[in-house]
Amino acid sequence: MSIVSCQHLDKKYKKQYALKDLTIELEENRIIGLIGRNGAGKTTLLKTLAGQIVPTGGEVKVFGENPFNNLKLSANTIYVDDQMQFSLEMRIHEILVAAEMFYENWNRELADRLIYYFGVDRYDFHDQLSKGMASTFNAILGLASRCPLTIFDEPTTGMDYSVRQDFYRALLKDYIAHPRTIIVSSHLLNELESILEEIVLIKNGKCILHESIEDFKEYAIGLSGDKNVIQSIVDHDVIIHEKELSESQVYIAVDNHLSEKDITGLKQQGVQMTSVEAADLSMFLTNDTRGGIDDVFKSS
């Protein structure tokens, strides 16, 4: 069953499009990574799914219904980001009480254990927490509420490396025990990729790729070798990324659709073939230019 369905979604702020003709279908009970650069429209898309933003065009359906102002959606969705603003008059333990009241699947034991493990002070006010602590608490809230649709928008902002690892591990373990649809957005893929099932790449308000993570890892292939040899065999259109290693040597990432003949040809000409790491690939695909930072410094 498709839990999220967006058709030609537009969202315009003033004169600028945050989402433009975005179409996407997400299936139930998966962990989906939403990857894009800052400003690509990740937050706008996620907030639209959470019913907090009205799209200016197109159609969005979550659980088969329009999410805006929808009680059923609200009861089954939690949206977690680092901007969550709780009542200034409530302490952490009071917020937990409120969450338990609202969310049917709330697991108090899990919340209490995580709070204890991560060392969040129950008697603090939310705005007294440090940035990392606040993110940790928000993430705990997102986990313990066990909503059928759980959305984490850049959940690890401000967290330490070890806390991030712990959080992703906790997310995976709780997902294994209670499968549900979890969307995690990030501008970085590497720490996240192992727990993902699917990946969605978004660039300039458009969904440019939606694949299973395993397919994504085989999506591209890296070629390094003689510039002329590679350019003679590889079609220019399929080049995703290009980096000059030296005068004559070049590294190129291409769509993994080369024919057997091309592959043997390249191999025979001494071109090295490597797989492209998912994190690198996502970066290549979401970058605006095909080259890298080196191109900036290249004297023409």
């Binding site: 659980f63 009861a75 009542s87 409530m90 409120a98 009241m101 209670h178 499968p179």
Partner: peptide, 26 residues
């Protein structure tokens, strides 16, 4: 995961409790 189907009044009731908790300063 099964969806919950909240009815309006139970949510209103919960939200009132939430306000009652969160607006002590009133």
């Amino acid at each position: 995961m099964s969806l919950s189907h909240p009815d309006l009044w139970s949510v209103v009731n919960k939200q009132f409790k939430y306000k009652w908790m969160s607006y002590k300063s009133v």
